[in-house]
Design a protein around this nucleic acid. Structure first.
Lengths: 119, 119
DNA sequence: TCTATGCTTCAACGATAGTTGATATGTAGG
DNA sequence: CCTACATATCAACTATCGTTGAAGCATAGA
C-alpha cells in the first residue's frame, strides 16, 4: 500500500458515517450487508450513504456485489490489514519493546486462537 | 477508546502532513523528534506544523515533552494500538477465518519475534 | 411493457479544514 | 535586561468536504 491510498483510507475512516459503516461491515463478516440495511444501521439517507460507500470502496476498505435488486457491501479485510501495516511499518528499528504491546493487543483478538485460517 | 476519539484519530491520519509526522515518529522510536526536525522532515512551515501536532496530540496519537529550547514529539504507541483494536473489534463473530489474515499480517512484524516486551 | 423497489448520480448550498502571515510565549546565552 | 532561537497562537482567506433534493439506471414482478 502506498501513501496515497493510505491517506484516502484514513480520511475515509475519519468520518462518522463511514467509520460506522466499516465497523458494521467488519462485524457483519464476509456475508456483508445490503446498502439499504446499512442506511438504516448508520441512520443516513440512501443517496448520501451511496456517496460514502463509493468513497470507502475507492479507498479499498469495502467491496460490493450485486444480489438481485440489492447491492451487498462487505469489509475488505485485506485492505484493512494493509492499512494497519502501513501505519506501523518500520516501528521496530532497534526498539522492538516499543511496538510489541500494540501488536500483542491486537493479537489478543480471538482470531488468533482459531488457527483454521487459510493464510 | 470510544468512537469520538477514534474519529479524531482517523481524521488526523487522513491528512498528508499529519500521516507523515506519525510515520516519522513511529520510525523514530521512543526518543522522538524535535518539532523543528519534524518540520524539515515533512517539509511544512513551523507554524503550520504546530497546528497539526496539536491536533495529533489531542487525538492521542503523539506525546510531547520539552527538552531545553526544543519540544520533542514521540509516537503514542498505546494510542495507535487502541485505534487498531477499535477498528477490528468484533471482527470474529463466528468467522475467525476472515480476519485472521489481517492479524497474521501485522504479527509478521519483527516486534513479535522479540518477546522482551513487558506487555 | 408497465410499475415498484433498490441504489446511484448530479448540481448546488453550507460548513469545516488547511494554509498563510503576523504576533506572542518560553528558553538559553551575553 | 536584551537579543536570538524554537514553538505556539491568532485572524483571515481559500479550498475542500458533507449534505440535500431531484433525477437517473438497474432489477424484479404483474
Amino acid at each position: 500500500m502506498d501513501e496515497r491510498q493510505a491517506l484516502a483510507a484514513f480520511a475515509a475512516l475519519g468520518q462518522e458515517h463511514r467509520l460506522r459503516v466499516v465497523r458494521a461491515l467488519v462485524t457483519a463478516g464476509p456475508d456483508g450487508l445490503a446498502a439499504g440495511v446499512l442506511a438504516e444501521t448508520v441512520n443516513v439517507a440512501g443517496n448520501n450513504l451511496s456517496f460514502h460507500l463509493k468513497e470507502l470502496s475507492h479507498a479499498g476498505l469495502i467491496t460490493s456485489r450485486r444480489e438481485g435488486k440489492s447491492v451487498i457491501y462487505s469489509a475488505a479485510y485485506a485492505g484493512l490489514s494493509d492499512l494497519v501495516q502501513f501505519l506501523m511499518r518500520d516501528c521496530c528499528q532497534g526498539h522492538p519493546e516499543v511496538c510489541a504491546p500494540a501488536v500483542a493487543a491486537l493479537a489478543a483478538c480471538d482470531c488468533t486462537t482459531g488457527e483454521t485460517a487459510h493464510a
